[in-house]
Design a protein around this nucleic acid. Structure first.
Lengths: 349, 349
DNA sequence: TACAAAAGTGGAACCGGTTCCACTCCGGTA
DNA sequence: TACCGGAGTGGAACCGGTTCCACTTTTGTA
C-alpha cells in the first residue's frame, strides 16, 4: 500500500514552491510563468498526483458535493431522478451523496445533519414536510437547498423545481371527461404537500368547468409510504357508485394501486379507465399499456442541479425561484368511454 | 449566514483544551475526567457543535465514505441495490457517493479517480470489465474494493458478492425442461463477465444432464447497454426452429426483451414460456405475471457493505472472499408445457 | 534613463480536526 | 519517606490543500 504524492512532493520534484503548484492547479488564482507551468504539469503527470478533496474542502469551508435526499431509491421515479442528477453532476465535476428518508422526518433530520457535517455545497431534496427549523438552519449555514417535486408551504423562500401539477391533473381529468366519464376517482399524495394540493386543484377545476359535481368521497389523499394506494383503490371500487375513471396521481402509490386492480380482476379499460402519474419502465408492459402523465425527470434533474450549482457559485440573483416544467400526457390503451350503465357496475367487484 | 462552531470554540467555552474535547469525541483515544466529560458534552449540545468531516478525513487520511459504482440507477436492479446499500451504510454511520458508468470503461476510470480523490474507504462496484490496472492501483492505495453481481477474471484477489449464477440458471433451465421444453433460448450478459459465463454453464449443465443437445444458436450473450435483448429475442423467434422456452438472464435486458415480446404479440405462455432473471417491481404486473429468478438484493447489499466496512476497520483476515447467495425461483404464470408441434410454430411470427 | 506598474515567486499562516508527547498530579508500594 | 506508575491534561505538530503578503524581476511608459 503506497502513499499518494502530495502537493509538496510535486513542488519539490518540480523545483518550485507549493504556491506555484497550487496556482497551476487553480488557473485563476494567480500568475505562473508558462515554462514553470509546463514543468509542474509534467511532474504532476509523472507522479500521478491528484489533489485530495478533503484538504481542499477543509480550507474552502465547503465541498464540491451535493446531497440528494429522497424517499428511497426503490421507487423508479426517485431512482431515475437520482440517475439523472448523478449524471448531470458528473459533467460539472460534482459528486452526489445519496440519502434516503423513508418519509420519516427523523431520518430526514439525521440525513441533513450528516450532510451538514460533510459541508456539502447544496442539497436537492423531496422534503417530508417536517423539520422546518432544520431546513432553515441548513440554509443559515450557507447550504443551498432546492426542493424537487414538492414544496413546503412553511418555507417560502426556497427554490423549487416541479412539474405543473395542477395543469397535469387537469389534463388527465379532461381526458377522462372527454371520453364521457363523470365519476372520476383521484388517488393523490398527502394534502399537506403542495403537490397533493395542486393536483387536487387541477382535478377540481376540470370537473367544475365541465359542470360536473365534485364528490369528495372520490378523492383520496394517501401517504407516500405503505399500501395506501391499493387500499384506496379497493375502497373506491367498493362504493355504491364506484368511479368509472381513475387517476393515480401519487407516484409512490402507482405500483400498489395497479397491483390491487390486477388482483381484483378489474378489466381495464372496460370496467375502469386508468391514468397514472408518472411513466415507469413498466407502464407500457402491462396489459393494456397504461396512459400516463410523464414527468420529464431529466428536466427536473437538470434544473435542480442548475439551481444548486448556480447558487453555490454565487452566479444567481438572490430570491427564491420556482421552476415548473410541463409534463407530457402519454395516451396508451387504458382509457375508453365508460360502460353504458355506470351505476350498475358496482357488481363488478 | 452564520459560522458553525469549531472544536476550539467548544474548548474555550468549556474551559478545557482541544485535546480534551477531541478525547470526549473519540472515547477510546484517551482518558477524560468524568466531570469534564459532562462539562464538554453540555457545551457541545449548547453550541450545537458538530465536527467537520473534512477535517477528520484530512488527518485520518481516509473518509468514512464508500463509493458505489454501478451502470446506472434507471435499472431497477441497481436502483434497489443502491437503496439497500445506502440504507445499510446509514446504520453504520457511513455515507455513500454514487457514480454511474453507463458500462463505459472511460467513465468508470473517471469515477474511480474521483473516488480516490475523495479518499473513500471502500468501493462497491459492478465493474465494466476494463480498467484492470486502475482497480489494482486503487487497492494499492488502500481502497477496499468489493465487486457485486460480477467478477473480473483478471482480478483474482478481490472480494466478490453475487448470487449462485450457475445454480440459478440451472434451476430455471430445469424448470423448463421438466415442463417438456427442449429448445430453450438463453439471453445472457457478455461472455466476458463471470456472471455471463456461469449462467451459460448452469444452462448447459441442465441440458446435458437431461441429455438434450445444446444448440449454440439458442444462446445469445448481449451487452448490458442498448437494445440487444430485444434484438436477440427477435432473432431467436425468427429461427426456423424457434425456442419454446426462453430464459432472459441479463438483468439489464429484461425490459428490452419483454417489450419486444409484447410488441411482437407473442402469447405467453402459449407460444413461449418465459423466465427472467431478476424480480422487478413490475414482473407481477404484466400479463401473465412472469416467473422470475429473484436476486436477494438486500443480501447482496448487506454482504457487500459488511465486507467493505470489515476491511476498512481491519477486522477481516487477509485474502479475498467470495460470497454467493442463493437466488429464489419464483414461479408465476409465464411457463407452461410447450405446444404440441413445436417446430410448426415458426409461423407464429 | 528613471520609475511606476505588473508579473512571478516563495514563505507562512490557516482551515478543523487527531495524536504524540511532556508534564502534573494522584494513590499505592517498598 | 522515597519512588513508581497511571490518570488526566494541555501544547504543538501534523494532515494537504489555499491564500495572503512581501519580495524580486520584468515590462512599459514618460
Amino acid at each position: 500500500m503506497k502513499k499518494a504524492p502530495t502537493i509538496r512532493d510535486v513542488a519539490a520534484a518540480a523545483g518550485v514552491s507549493v504556491s506555484v503548484v497550487s496556482r497551476v492547479l487553480n488557473p485563476d488564482s494567480g500568475p505562473v510563468a508558462p515554462a514553470k507551468r509546463e514543468q509542474v504539469l509534467s511532474v504532476i503527470s509523472d507522479l500521478g498526483y491528484r489533489p485530495r478533496a478533503a484538504a481542499r474542502e477543509l480550507s474552502a469551508g465547503h465541498a464540491l458535493t451535493v446531497g440528494l435526499v429522497v424517499t428511497d431509491l426503490a421507487n423508479p421515479f426517485f431512482a431515475q431522478l437520482a440517475d439523472r442528477v448523478v449524471w448531470e453532476a458528473r459533467s460539472h465535476g460534482v459528486q452526489v451523496v445519496v440519502m434516503t428518508t423513508q418519509e420519516d422526518p427523523h431520518l430526514e433530520a439525521e440525513s441533513l445533519d450528516t450532510l451538514l457535517d460533510r459541508s456539502v455545497g447544496g442539497v436537492i431534496a423531496t422534503p417530508t414536510g417536517g423539520n422546518i427549523e432544520k431546513w432553515d438552519r441548513l440554509r443559515d449555514l450557507g447550504v443551498n437547498v432546492v426542493f424537487v417535486d414538492r414544496a413546503i408551504a412553511e418555507l417560502g423562500d426556497v427554490d423549487v423545481v416541479s412539474i405543473e401539477n395542477s395543469d397535469s391533473a387537469r389534463r388527465a381529468t379532461d381526458h377522462l371527461i372527454a371520453l364521457g366519464h363523470e365519476r372520476i376517482g383521484l388517488v393523490t399524495g398527502p394534502a399537506s404537500t403542495s403537490t397533493g394540493r395542486s393536483r387536487i386543484g387541477g382535478y377540481r377545476a376540470a370537473l367544475e368547468s365541465a359542470s360536473i359535481d365534485i364528490d369528495p368521497i372520490l378523492v383520496r389523499d394517501v401517504p407516500f409510504r405503505g399500501d395506501g394506494g391499493g387500499d384506496a383503490v379497493g375502497s373506491l371500487l367498493a362504493l355504491p357508485e364506484p368511479p368509472t375513471g381513475l387517476i393515480v396521481a401519487n407516484t409512490a402509490q402507482v405500483q400498489s394501486s395497479v397491483r390491487r386492480l390486477v388482483q381484483m380482476g378489474v378489466r381495464i379499460p372496460d370496467d375502469l379507465s386508468v391514468i397514472v402519474f408518472d411513466d415507469n419502465p413498466w407502464t407500457e408492459l402491462t396489459s393494456p399499456p397504461l396512459s400516463v402523465i410523464r414527468q420529464p425527470i431529466g428536466m427536473l434533474a437538470v434544473h435542480s442541479l442548475e439551481l444548486v450549482l448556480g447558487r453555490m457559485q454565487g452566479r444567481l440573483p438572490a430570491g427564491a425561484r420556482t421552476i415548473e416544467v410541463k409534463a407530457d400526457f402519454v395516451p396508451r390503451s387504458s382509457c375508453a368511454a365508460p360502460a353504458r350503465s355506470a351505476t350498475s357496475k358496482s357488481a363488478t367487484r
